[in-house]
Computed example of a mutant assay.
Amino acid sequence: MKNPYEVLGLKKDATDQEIKLAFKKLAKKYHPDLHPDDKQAEARFKNISAAHEFLKDKDRRRRFDAGEIDASGAEKQQHYYRDYAGPSGGSHASQDGFASNEDLEEFLSRAFGGMAGGMGAGMGGMGGMGGRRSGGRAGMKAQGQDVSYTLRVSFLDAAKGGVNTLQLPDGKTLKVTIPEGAEDRQTLRLKGQGGPGYGGGPAGDAYIELHIEPDAHFVRKDDNIHLEVPVTLKEAVLGAKIQIPTLTGPVSLTVAKGANTGTKMRLKDRGIRNRKTGQKGHLYVTLKVVLPDHEEPELAEFLQNWTPRTAQNPRKEMLS
């Protein structure tokens, strides 16, 4: 892997938040779902994920910044390299730059997490090196890559919470629990649901970005819900009890006599639960008076013969 800072387009002094934001931005841009059959984009996405995984590990990042390890996580064991001795120095090192095969094996063991024994076995004619360190240390372990997905969620599922099924590119499915009061573009982390680990290491994580679909009636503003409710002319003039929808089902609402378009009412604690405080917002209802869909001759005749007690010009302010 290249320098992880360069992969994410960051400087060495980047904060944890800047690293996270850079990863999310690039992951969205190069996600395989957006570039099907594009091997370059897939490779770029893997590099981005690997760089993010590397830098979010505080210990690995510290050691990389200090020059103790390289971008692959391998130790930098420069002190095992030995210069050639001068004419009077006695024996010379081998042309590999190591004093002996034992030194070379020790270097490989440190650099590749104990894999030198296997490598030595595969290098069997090199001065009897194979099998000398057959025990070695355990194989290198690494956490699997994190993966990112987007999930479309209905307004009501986001408001009330629920469980949705995410269809993965390989045909598998993933159960995603939507928390009550989930917000648009909120990212959920599913631990251990990412790529498989290496050498017995833990699996990576899955990051699910929620895309909340708009509702036909409800509009969310912070933790409050706003709802426009149509009422008939008769209901507005004479008053009535009507049924209106809420997040948890229909409820009865009293419309006062003489209600008008724009009249607002509040239903306490009928909004969305705040994830931090646990308190619920409110449902704000705005009335909208609607005329009959079809002709009403009696209503037309009444209005023709009706003289209001108080003259009214609803457009007065507009014309002044």
Rank of each mutant, 00 (worst) to 15 (best):
R82W: 05
F98K: 15
G258T: 03
E6N: 10
P169H: 06
K221I: 06
D103E: 01
E296R: 09
M1V: 11
A93Q: 02
R61H: 05
K29Y: 04
H92F: 11
E53V: 08
Q279S: 07
R189Y: 00
S72P: 14
G239E: 00
A138M: 08
I19N: 03
M115R: 02
A203D: 03
R309V: 15
G199T: 00
D293A: 13
K221E: 08
A142R: 15
H79I: 10
S49G: 11
T254V: 08
K11S: 11
G171P: 00
Q145F: 12
V289G: 10
P297R: 01
R189W: 01
F218R: 01
D146E: 02
L104S: 08
P36Q: 11
D222T: 11
D59N: 14
E295Y: 08
K172Q: 04
T232A: 13
G162P: 08
E105V: 15
G139P: 15
K288V: 13
G122Y: 02
S94V: 14
R309N: 08
E209D: 04
K24W: 15
G113N: 10
V229T: 07
G181N: 11
K24G: 01
N305R: 09
P202D: 05
R133T: 00
Q279F: 02
D205N: 05
G249Q: 05
K28C: 03
L34D: 03
Q145I: 15
G67P: 10
L299E: 15
P179R: 07
H52P: 07
H35Q: 09
E53F: 14
K257N: 04
L10W: 07
R270H: 14
D65G: 01
D269A: 14
A300V: 03
G195M: 01
D57T: 08
P214A: 12
R63H: 10
P196N: 14
A71P: 04
A43M: 01
R62I: 04
I212G: 11
K276Y: 14
G195C: 07
E296L: 09
T15C: 03
S134G: 09
M115T: 12
D70V: 09
V255T: 10
R132L: 08
